[in-house]
Amino acid sequence: MPGTRIAALGHHQPSRVLTNAHLEALVETSDAWIRQRTGIATRRIAGEDESVTDMAAAAAAKALAASGQAPAEIGLVTVATCFGIDRCPSTAAQVAARLRWPYPWPDLPPPARSRGLDTAPPMMWLPSHSGVSHPGPLTCPITETEEGIVRMKAVIVCASVSHGNTRRIADSMAQVLDAKVVSPEQADLAELAGADLVGFGSGVFYQRLHPRLTDFVKALPTGRGRAFVFATSGLPELPLAPFTRPLVQLLEGKGFEVEANFSCRALDTMMPFKLVGGIQKQRPNDGDLAAARAFAARLRVS
Rank of each mutant, 00 (worst) to 15 (best):
T78G: 06
I74E: 03
V79H: 09
L64S: 01
E50I: 02
I40Y: 11
M55K: 13
D49A: 02
M55W: 14
P71Y: 08
E73G: 13
A66K: 10
S51I: 01
E50S: 01
L64M: 04
E73K: 08
G68H: 11
D54E: 01
A58K: 08
S51L: 06
A57R: 03
R43L: 08
A65H: 12
A66Y: 02
F83G: 03
A56E: 01
S51V: 01
V52Y: 05
I45P: 07
L64P: 00
T42E: 15
G68C: 07
E48G: 12
A63R: 05
M55Q: 15
V77E: 04
A46H: 05
T78P: 02
A63E: 05
A61H: 09
A80H: 15
S51Q: 04
A80E: 15
E48P: 04
A46R: 10
R43G: 07
T78N: 10
E73D: 15
E50P: 00
V79K: 06
A70K: 11
I40L: 13
A58T: 11
S67R: 04
T53D: 14
R44A: 07
T53S: 14
A58N: 02
V77Q: 04
I45Y: 05
C82S: 12
I74D: 05
F83P: 02
K62T: 07
G68T: 03
A57K: 04
T53P: 08
E73H: 08
G68F: 11
P71F: 07
K62C: 03
G75I: 10
A61Q: 13
T53K: 11
D49G: 00
A41S: 15
A63K: 06
A72Q: 10
T42F: 08
A56W: 01
A56G: 03
R43N: 08
L76W: 06
D49N: 03
G47N: 08
A46V: 06
E50M: 01
V79T: 12
A72N: 04
V77K: 03
A59K: 03
A56D: 02
P71M: 06
T78R: 14
C82V: 10
A58I: 04
G75H: 14
R43S: 07
A59P: 00
V52P: 09
A65S: 15
A57T: 04
V77D: 03
V52S: 10
G68S: 07
G75S: 13
G75D: 15
A57Y: 04
L76M: 12
F83W: 10
T53Y: 06
A41P: 11
C82Q: 15
G68I: 03
E48L: 11
K62G: 02
F83C: 14
G68L: 09
P71S: 03
D49E: 08
G75L: 13
I40N: 12
S51A: 05
A72K: 08
A59Y: 05
C82M: 15
S51K: 05
